[in-house]
């Protein structure tokens, strides 16, 4: 009896370990396979955080799954009629304290990491960011570059320079989301909200509205380009003066 209980416990631990390994594998693979290509410092941090949190979650989820599977395999009543009473266990201080301690440690770790990442995102590294004014309106984004006369429906950004987006709206609340940059902020009427990011990869990216904004919300998106600083200045000077 004692040995069979021990054996079944061993199978519980093995299930836990195997499920955790599967979870860690998924954590390493899924985000990289499915998340949009990271094109800024914030997006890289987002990706790392995603993977890290998934790895932390793997043993917790696997523990509960292994426990549930263990119950299904070893503690299911297979007879007919009403099952006989089980051992009347009411408490286990040891289990309770270790569970709460473990979950508290994980929570604190996740918190410390998250607060650190938040500080890293908020910290402005550059004293000379490129400022872009972003205007949302139903259902178009327009971008203007202070100091120039350029207003555009496309967002051009130079590589490796911090950008400060000053976001506002002409009508309802919109959500300004740079899909590949891992940052977003709402565009509110009569208010300017700001976000910072530093694009660090050349290429095309997507700008979407992620706050429901009426009839054609689904179509409110724009295209963006990260280009070399040279190309950026030639693009700026090639633009017709508008407004």
């Amino acid at each position: 009896m004692e040995t069979s209980a021990k054996k079944s416990l061993r199978s519980f631990y093995w299930t836990w370990v195997i499920l955790t390994a599967v979870g860690v594998g998924l954590s390493l693979w899924l985000p990289r396979r499915y998340m949009p290509a990271a094109m800024s410092n914030d997006a890289h941090l987002t990706m790392t955080t995603m993977i890290l949190f998934s790895i932390c979650a793997a043993p917790v989820a696997s523990g509960v799954y292994a426990g549930a599977l263990h119950v299904l395999r070893h503690h299911r009543y297979r007879g007919d009629g009403v099952p006989p009473p089980a051992p009347q266990i009411r408490e286990s201080t040891k289990l309770l304290t270790s569970w709460i301690t473990a979950s508290a440690i994980l929570t604190v770790f996740v918190l410390v990491w998250g607060l650190g990442a938040l500080a890293a995102e908020n910290g402005s590294s550059s004293s000379n960011p490129l400022v872009v004014n972003v205007t949302g309106q139903q259902w178009v984004w327009t971008f203007s570059y202070p100091g120039t006369h350029v207003v555009s429906d496309e967002l051009y950004l130079p590589e490796n320079r911090e950008v400060e987006f000053r976001v506002t709206s002409l009508d309802v609340t919109h959500g300004f989301w740079l899909v590949n940059m891992g940052v977003q902020v709402d565009a509110n009427p009569d208010v300017i909200t700001t976000i910072h990011t530093t694009p660090d990869k050349l290429g095309v990216f997507e700008v979407r509205c992620e706050q429901f904004c009426g009839l054609n919300h689904a179509f409110m998106d724009a295209v963006g380009y990260v280009v070399t600083p040279q190309k950026f200045s030639s693009w700026l000077s090639a633009q017709p003066a508008r407004a």
Partner: peptide, 24 residues
Amino acid sequence: ELISIPTGIFFLVLVGTLWRGNVW
């Protein structure tokens, strides 16, 4: 994020109640 601690206890209570039971 502190919410994950009481939520975790829910799992402990549920699985702990079933553990070593005669689950019908």
